[in-house]
Nucleic acid binder design. Sequence first.
DNA 1: GATGAATGAGACTTCATTCAT
DNA 2: TATGAATGAAGTCTCATTCAT
Lengths: 231, 231, 231, 231
Amino acid sequence: MLTQNSPESTSPAKRERRKQARPGELLAAALDLFVEKGFAATRAEEVARRAGVSKGTLFLYFSSKEELFKAVVRDSISGHFPVWNAEFETFTGSTAGMLRQFMTLWWVRVGATKASGITKLMLSEASNFPELAAFYQQEVMAPGQALIRRILQRGVDSGEFRPIDLQYGVYSVLAPMIFLLTRKHAMGCCAGGNDDLVPEVYIAAQVDTLLNGLCRAPSSTPPSLKKTQST
Amino acid sequence: MLTQNSPESTSPAKRERRKQARPGELLAAALDLFVEKGFAATRAEEVARRAGVSKGTLFLYFSSKEELFKAVVRDSISGHFPVWNAEFETFTGSTAGMLRQFMTLWWVRVGATKASGITKLMLSEASNFPELAAFYQQEVMAPGQALIRRILQRGVDSGEFRPIDLQYGVYSVLAPMIFLLTRKHAMGCCAGGNDDLVPEVYIAAQVDTLLNGLCRAPSSTPPSLKKTQST
Amino acid sequence: MLTQNSPESTSPAKRERRKQARPGELLAAALDLFVEKGFAATRAEEVARRAGVSKGTLFLYFSSKEELFKAVVRDSISGHFPVWNAEFETFTGSTAGMLRQFMTLWWVRVGATKASGITKLMLSEASNFPELAAFYQQEVMAPGQALIRRILQRGVDSGEFRPIDLQYGVYSVLAPMIFLLTRKHAMGCCAGGNDDLVPEVYIAAQVDTLLNGLCRAPSSTPPSLKKTQST
Amino acid sequence: MLTQNSPESTSPAKRERRKQARPGELLAAALDLFVEKGFAATRAEEVARRAGVSKGTLFLYFSSKEELFKAVVRDSISGHFPVWNAEFETFTGSTAGMLRQFMTLWWVRVGATKASGITKLMLSEASNFPELAAFYQQEVMAPGQALIRRILQRGVDSGEFRPIDLQYGVYSVLAPMIFLLTRKHAMGCCAGGNDDLVPEVYIAAQVDTLLNGLCRAPSSTPPSLKKTQST
DNA sequence: GATGAATGAGACTTCATTCAT
DNA sequence: TATGAATGAAGTCTCATTCAT
């Protein structure tokens, strides 16, 4: 989370301190509840109560429930992009290593944290809240995909990767991330009895497959697709 | 869908027939609406109206909106596996071709149809209905994964595939399917500005990547996709 | 009021009877309360309670408080215009008599009834509810002024009246009507101690003044205004 | 307005001066806003902000929003009559001219200024504040009407006017004034499409009609009503 | 069985008023 | 005295569910 909340302060300027901390406390409470119950099912009053304030106070800091949600997204995810992107600006290793690091860090920073719940939430409720969906698309999806695309482009440019279609390549990287979120938040909670998926291992395996494919040899790869290409 | 709905009949003698058909008509209407708007946003009255009955009648057959939802999922997801599995029992080509066919057929029969909405619906609402999630896991996910596993096993056994971890391999295949559903039902409505993803092409590309990886490799990388290169 | 409400019925099709009567009962309750407390200060629930139904029922018949108000206006005033206008289509007497009849009937049918409260209400709250103001302007003011204008035009055409500016003439007729409403609903409640204004007498006197002026003779009418004649 | 407001001073030593001026500044801000938006729609915080103080300070000086309203009306309506009355004590022209001057000056000094908002405000809110209405009646309406009555009496005495009922004559003069206020503050915002009413012209026309009537000839004024004729 | 009018809890949001600083 | 963060009652509107007909 971006905000640093220090709810327990007893110094002289107590009121001011509280005011500084309020948004962070509300954001934290909102993140918890949104992830736990979804956007529509989370009641504004409950967010306020969990943050230890009254209903009215919530609206003092966030003009509507939707604005609160946007703030949560910014605080949990999109606010970090500048830093995260910067790390890759200066990456010097192989592009394969870069892709591995991207997915690994994504898991550590988003997938494994509460922030991942936000993405799952969008998957679930986007269609009912078009404005939020647009916001998320613009604030999170677009920058994220841009970064993936830059990595793939680098691999193609350097000759490390085959000259693939970039957009579909991006989706190939995205798919396992979405899959993990789905496991964790939707099916995972009660999927099978066997917890047979260790995310870190899955990501490693996924990167491996992504880079090298399932096939043993270069083989006589079929001329892939002479089919559909329907529109 | 398993139920056969014939909503447009009102002749005198057909009254009894109608009574028999009621639950099916309600289920069909509910499926449409749940897929279209999600669980919370679907109003009971609208389901009833689309089924051609009154609100009261809906509650005559389903004691609550939740029960209706459960019934929809139960009614719409099983029964296809026996047939689909059988087709692969007798497959004779290469395992690469088998995998390609599996995903292609999945798209044609599930991904591209209304049935896909049910899966998306589970993704969205599973956490609110643990009982349903378990049911879905057992009835749909397990058989589906078993089939994928059999295909991969065949490839490994025949030496076509590298000796990968089977379970993670299954997830590698599953991920793009989930991703497509997500595109179609959740983010799709407003994702990007450009509808830059053609499912059939994506699946083909995905299978290609799955089989051969992104890396140029030692290999004579197939000229697989010299297409689109859209931006 | 246009609606005929018969709240007390015990015949077989009781429910249907109630349904017929509901809008009228709600309209009557709303009229009372709007006149008594104004638009903004009238709570929807109170309207419902006075009509003997629950909050939800009100919104079953009128989709919003504003729509309820519009319905009240139509029911109390503008719905009568067709009939009222018709009466003047066939008027055969002098235009002076016509004008006298117009104002007299206005008092009997609107000014002296609860409907007058609606006009007063618009005077008070129009600026806070622009949509309602526009509605009232279009539905009530415009037709009313059109009728007045027709009367004045008739007088001018027949030579009974001086060739006055029609629009200002309309306002001359309107002013005492507004004045009466103001007396009745705003200042009247506690104006002075002496109820020194009898509306019917005021109207008669006003018509007289309107027709003949205050001056004793035709005198040397000052060349006062040979102006505008706009419109 | 009686209070002199100097809202824009914040120098160090002027602190004490400010304190004295506070109530006046608040009253001025409140007057502006009440006239502009009405009582209910004016928010306490906005009044405070416009006066350059905080919300808390407003309640330091006025115990509630209602009290503030009363104070505004009390502060804004008296004091002008002595001067205005004096002007007419010494009037020497014709009574017709006197009446014309009275209405013209009223428009210049009241109707066209912010003061007119107070009267409109009384019209709107009087029924909710009976005490204020009584106060206004006594302090403003009564003296105003007395002046009009004196003018009419003068006309009758001198033989310029017909021997009309004085009280109703007063109301005939009052009506167009009220009408103008109504136009300006209530309906005006969206009345008609065309701003077809120029107050000065209207007043002139009104005076003309008042003096000479609509009818062409002195005619045989119908024996219509030598008053009462009620109902 | 079928209907649909009626219900009322509950959601979001506003804002006059309070009170610790 | 002045502040402004905090409160919470109140308002409009929705919708799953009930029940008299």
